[in-house]
């Protein structure tokens, strides 16, 4: 029984690790180590509820734990982030590929948002969740989730104006 449980759990983690790690990284604003800690904490929690939710939606459970823990830990501890006018990580022209530079710029811009705004934006635009599910995941009213996402996008629009060129 325990072996079966462990096997199913390992298979799920191995299959979804990459996606979940990217989600954690976006939720932490690009902090790789914190993203690993956050994801591991969420997956440990998943292990203890695995028999209950294995047949339902384990990824939704991990997503909820990740998003809420990211917002909570950012409120609880100070991670050394300081809001600045200019983005500190500017990609050099020749030493990074365009994709890596784009990703770094995106993560740096996400790091400028508040944790709630960042979680709402990531859940909405990376996880493609509707407002209702974003609110359910974050544990807040729909209007609050919509407000967080709108403010986050408005700020990203200013920060990423030169990365995402206006179309038309």
């Amino acid at each position: 029984m325990e072996q079966t449980r462990a096997g199913e759990y390992d298979a799920f983690v191995a299959a979804r690790w990459s996606v979940l790690f990217h989600l954690a990284r976006l939720l932490t604003g690009g902090d790789r180590h914190r993203a690993e800690d956050l994801l591991q904490e969420s997956l440990v929690k998943l292990w203890f509820v695995w028999p209950k939710i294995a047949d339902e939606a384990p990824e939704a459970y991990v997503r909820k734990v990740l998003a809420r823990a990211a917002a909570r830990s950012a409120r609880r501890r100070w991670w050394g982030e300081r809001p600045v006018e200019q983005l500190p990580e500017v990609a050099a022209a020749g030493d990074m590929s365009a994709t890596v530079a784009e990703r770094s710029r995106l993560e740096a811009a996400l790091g400028q948002l508040t944790p709630q705004q960042r979680a709402a934006v990531v859940l909405r635009y990376y996880q493609d969740l509707p407002d209702r599910q974003v609110a359910e995941t974050l544990g807040c009213p729909v209007g609050t989730a919509r407000s967080h996402a709108a403010r986050g996008v408005a700020r990203l629009r200013r920060l990423l104006a030169d990365v995402i060129e206006p179309v038309g």
């Binding site: 790690f21 990217h22 976006l26 990703r103 635009y125 990376y126 996008v153 990203l156 995402i164």
Partner: peptide, 17 residues
């Protein structure tokens, strides 16, 4: 367009881990 490009950018930024 910005929101659609933002969604694409987030998906594009995923690296294999």
């Amino acid at each position: 367009a910005f929101e659609r490009q933002l969604a694409q950018l987030m998906h594009r930024a995923q690296q294999p881990a």
